[in-house]
Nucleic acid binder design. Structure first.
Lengths: 113, 113
DNA sequence: CACATTGTCAAGTCTCAGCTTCAGTGTTTC
DNA sequence: GAAACACTGAAGCTGAGACTTGACAATGTG
């Protein structure tokens, strides 16, 4: 069972889907089986399993199989990857915005059209 | 000029695309025109403008048009939305993970089915 | 003014993600 | 052992999204 480190693309793409975010919210309250996740979602078990696969690949969920049931739990790895990416860029962005304010103050805006 | 607050779905979806992340990295070093962004990307100007539109809708970029040039700058709003979503969930996830360890040691898990 | 630059708009193509269906496979229960 | 259960895997459908093309508009520059 390999556990390759998730990349940012995977994590953000995984988080972009509303169904997957719903699954994550649900798992935030505790572990659940695949069929347990499927019930309130109104989609097929197969679809849920596909979502869970994406979430697992992006380090947002981990699963293990006990008997015939696949149990899904939250995994903070993907969350950490996303947070790190954002946190690394925030200072630069904010600095950039401060300087933008200066530029706008100096140079007069020309109303378009 | 409407400025509706970006939702999480938009932001994460926008960040999921590698080209858009490249654009953001570029804009982190300073404002740029649409064609200026297109040059190193190897895609059409039209494609870049479409990406910029997505980024603007998700509050990650703002643009203004001066003359015939559309100037794009970074916007921290979308970043803040994403960070807030992640930060709000981190404690729950980490608590969940801690308790998972305990549960595994003591009693069998009861996943909802 | 002629011309190039920069961007906008509206198709149209193409790939892929999300979903379903269905036919298995392994596991529990009676 | 039979039947219900929980999932797996593959195939196929469909719509969204990334990209192109080409025709147009607006703005600079010789």
């Amino acid at each position: 069972m390999e556990n390759p480190p998730p990349n940012v693309a995977q994590v953000f793409q995984a988080l972009g889907d509303p169904t997957r975010r719903t699954i994550l919210e649900r798992l935030g309250t505790g572990p659940a089986s695949a069929s347990g996740l499927a019930a309130p979602l109104g989609i097929t078990l197969a679809a849920v399993v596909q979502h869970v696969q994406v979430l697992e690949d992006s380090g947002l969920v981990s699963t293990r199989k006990t008997g015939r049931v696949r149990i899904c739990t939250i995994n903070a790895t993907g969350l950490a990857v996303a947070e790190q990416w954002l946190r690394a860029r925030r200072p630069v962005w904010e600095a950039r915005l401060d300087r933008l304010g200066d530029l706008l103050a100096v140079e007069p805006l020309k109303p378009s059209v």
